[in-house]
Design a protein around this nucleic acid. Structure first.
Lengths: 349, 349
DNA sequence: GTCTCGAATGGGAACGTTCCCATACTAGAT
DNA sequence: ATCTAGTATGGGAACGTTCCCATTCGAGAC
């Protein structure tokens, strides 16, 4: 009542001011300016400017069913990979005239369900999902209602939906090839708990497969919890067991961080024990002698997700089969995968 | 036409299914369940579940004027400080039953204006602003329309609005006190180009003030562009000029990154040349011997912003004076501000 | 038995758009 | 002159809610 809110002007007020009808004003802002006579066009433009009119997206969304909103469900907004992808998504959205409604689930499956229905209630026109858990049922329901869905990075086996992400098998291949070429023979694959997260599963499996194919290499796989001292103990035991030259392949950025910490705590220098991480982080070049990484084209992945969504939106449910778009990582070789020259020939000390 | 979209059920369909009126269903979902008889309540609940009904927020927002949407304008979504604050914002929003519409301006003032009016067109109920440029005019207009505004971290002098952020003077004080206590005498304050960014200005000014008050200390201030080799050259020249023991105070995370790179390139070890950064980053403990930082309570800052916004929303424009909420940083002391024992007494070599 | 009151429920207008359809006018063809 | 087609414009219904205002009904007071 006492609010000093000088209400938003409506289309009707602009029409009155311009001596036109609301239909004409609607056309003016709805991208049909060419249909208006130059005189009317000008009058409307002036009136709108004078009143500070801005079309109400809410009302617009109600009538037309076009909310011009795209939703993105992010497992962990503090994860730099997620943020980088989101950045690409955001840019692409803007370029296409959409806004982005972001929901962060904090890796909590319960939150995930809540947020999913929240996004639905805003009638987003499409949804990008970086799943924390397995909200398959909910997503199937949404897909059945005709909502375009794109799974980003992580996917759900039972869900027939478009997917965008890294070519995980290729990434592991590149990692192993590089480590092998650099002279490392004993490999430790280190992951966060694999669980149901598809990228972790894929990287994990590919590692096993490749190792079984390469007689010159041997290795182990582990997926410890990253908090606590498990990583350090694991590394120590592995190095004792495996001998040299040994290297650690980190399945994602968090693992790289934990492994680097652990190696430092053990007083081991990078390179002498090889270290290669999937995901490039801004500090990887900083820790001497630099950590070798496989960088994901995060921005591209984000843009691809939006593009895929809009393609679905366009073809109006032509029920094309799900499309999977995979991207290749880029190897950034640094000192952490360079064996010290002097140690060249003492294979197993 | 051919779309397999099995339309969202409406309140009317639920009402029909439950043998009730739309008003009752509206009450059921509008948080007035107690007003309904247990029998009716149950029938509506069942009908809604059966049809998979979900209130349409768009329609809801139109009639009631309550979009249940809060907007946040972020200068750079890839900046870990911004993301951390955003995380707090997002959590607080969720807890209060709001959703968050995020707009990233990529530090581009033009984008900023565009996004501001975009957010306005979705009729967000409040706006958190982490400004890239100086959209004072636009913000004044929005504030005049009764839209609650909170400036986060960066603020605009001419704009009378609530502010939430770090106590920058205190941060610089703590930094200088720590460096001084650790035995450093020659200080270099390094910032990104100060320009109009208020936190940079405040830190910059406080540094000058403090230095003029402390005869035991001397120092310089610089704000080079971070790309290119300017930082390295600057550091080298400063160290030659100033003598030892010298330390660098980095005004934010980006600077810390650049300075660390530059010191490494110069072959200088951390600690021998002191390094203290404002903003804690996850790699600061990794670079030997660890980088001393002043951590901001980012999560708290984000939550405070939302809280402030909702407070304004509640008092319905009681025109209270703008409120400024400042938070204290936490010092995390590491090796980069510990002088090597042997160098204790060669003040100026 | 009538009156009053409160609790439970429902009808209808309004929110600010879009979009279908009607109308008015101009110009050229007949 | 009349008809046709096209262009510029406007009126009104609809989108799915909320919220104001009835209406109904039983219980207790008179």
């Amino acid at each position: 009542m006492s609010a000093p809110t000088s209400r938003h002007p409506t289309i009707l007020e602009v029409a009155r001011e311009a001596g036109a009808s609301k239909t004409s004003v609607s056309r003016y802002f709805g991208g049909e300016r060419e249909r208006l006579s130059p005189a009317l066009r000008q009058r409307i433009g002036e009136a709108a400017r004078k009143l500070g009119y801005r079309p109400n997206q809410i009302a617009r969304g109600l009538k037309g069913g076009r909310s011009r909103l795209l939703g993105m469900l992010v497992a962990d907004i503090r994860n730099s990979y997620s943020v980088a992808v989101m950045h690409g998504v955001e840019q692409a959205c803007r370029e296409q005239g959409y806004s982005l409604l972001v929901a962060n689930t904090g890796n909590d499956p319960a939150q995930e369900r809540t947020h999913l229905s929240l996004l639905a209630s805003y009638r987003v026109e499409g949804l990008m999902i970086n799943a924390a858990g397995q909200p398959t049922r909910e997503l199937q329901a949404m897909a059945a209602q005709g909502l375009p869905l794109v799974l980003v990075d992580r996917w759900l086996e039972e869900l027939e939906a478009d997917r965008v992400g890294l070519d995980n098998a290729l990434a592991v291949d590149m990692a192993i090839d590089h480590l092998s070429a650099q002279g490392y023979r004993h490999l430790l694959f280190l992951s966060e708990p694999v669980g149901l997260a598809s990228p972790r599963q894929q990287r994990w499996q590919r590692f096993e497969q490749r190792l079984s194919e390469e007689p010159a290499l041997d290795g182990e796989r582990h997926d410890p919890a990253l908090d606590g001292s498990a990583v350090g103990a694991l590394l120590k035991a592995f190095l004792a067991r495996a001998g040299r030259p040994a290297a650690v392949l980190c399945a994602n950025g968090n693992v790289t961080l934990a492994a680097t910490r652990a190696l430092q705590a053990l007083g081991l220098s990078l390179g002498e024990v090889g270290l290669l991480g999937i995901d490039e982080l801004d500090w990887c070049s900083l820790v001497p002698p630099g950590i070798t990484t496989l960088a994901q084209p995060t921005e591209t992945i984000g843009r691809a997700a939006v593009q895929q969504l809009l393609a679905r939106l366009d073809d109006g449910g032509a029920a094309l089969p799900p499309r999977h778009t995979l991207f290749s990582p880029t190897l950034i070789a640094r000192g952490s995968t360079r064996l010290p020259a002097t140690d060249n020939d003492k294979e197993t000390p």
